[in-house]
């Protein structure tokens, strides 16, 4: 069990009477996974359920031991999430958010600041997010997803909005983090660049079930 980074058991999710997810069992070992699916298939819901943003039925374990219900705080220290279209209160600055994430998630600041500098986030970090373009906001949310000591990072559509230079940098950062033992689940309508990332498997949502291919 110990090598399983995430285990989902009898996980189901309904929006009122409408069933969206029904996953009897899924175990993922350390690695980078590409989560595929059509629009409305439930990719974002799956990620939000995993990230603890949405209530669900069933059990999710991280590293085989940390239960999302019984150890909610420890669970959230091990799983980070970057939304496809991040939304933050307009008056918060990038720095406000970084400090909040550091205070709660902990971890080493230096690599995150290095990533922020590499992506150019440091140039606008003291401005309120209302002044950011969609690309700047996306970069900030990606940087926030690397704060702390996560076992797994969920990236929802990380390839959209950002420029090609940042994209290359992001691939490098993901690869480096993975070498340090961090797993990733990445949703994307475009295939992940196999020359940049070694994908351990592809996840698809079929009939509300999440299947590892």
């Amino acid at each position: 069990m110990a090598d399983k980074v995430i285990t989902m058991e009898s996980v189901s999710k309904n929006y009122q009477d409408f069933a969206v997810l029904d996953i009897p069992k899924l175990e993922l070992s350390t690695g980078i996974y590409w989560l595929k699916g059509e629009n409305g298939a439930g990719k974002t819901t799956t990620m939000k359920v995993m990230a603890g943003l949405l209530p669900f039925r069933g059990e999710i374990l991280l590293n085989g031991t940390v239960n999302s219900r019984r150890q909610p705080v420890q669970y959230r220290r091990l799983i980070n999430y970057a939304e496809a279209e991040p939304l933050y209160p307009a008056y918060l600055t990038g720095r406000d958010l970084l400090e909040l994430y550091f205070r709660t998630k902990g971890g080493d600041r230096a690599p995150v600041f290095a990533m922020a500098t590499q992506m150019g986030v440091d140039n606008f970090v003291n401005n309120p997010v209302s002044s950011y373009s969609s690309g700047m906001l996306k970069k900030l949310s990606l940087v926030l997803a690397f704060v702390g000591n996560p076992a797994i990072i969920l990236l929802d559509e990380p390839l959209i909005t950002i420029d090609t230079k940042t994209l290359a940098q992001l691939y490098g950062i993901i690869q480096d983090s993975h070498s340090a033992g961090v797993s990733f689940i990445i949703t994307s309508h475009q295939p992940l660049d196999s020359s940049q990332l070694t994908v351990a498997g592809t996840l698809t949502i079929e009939n509300k079930n999440l299947i590892l291919n």
């Binding site: 959230r76 939304e83 709660t104």
Partner: peptide, 15 residues
């Protein structure tokens, strides 16, 4: 406001 803008707080390890 909480529902729209502070969703991200739920992913943070806050008791």
């Amino acid at each position: 406001f909480d529902e729209i803008y502070l969703q991200f707080l739920l992913n943070l390890p806050i008791s």
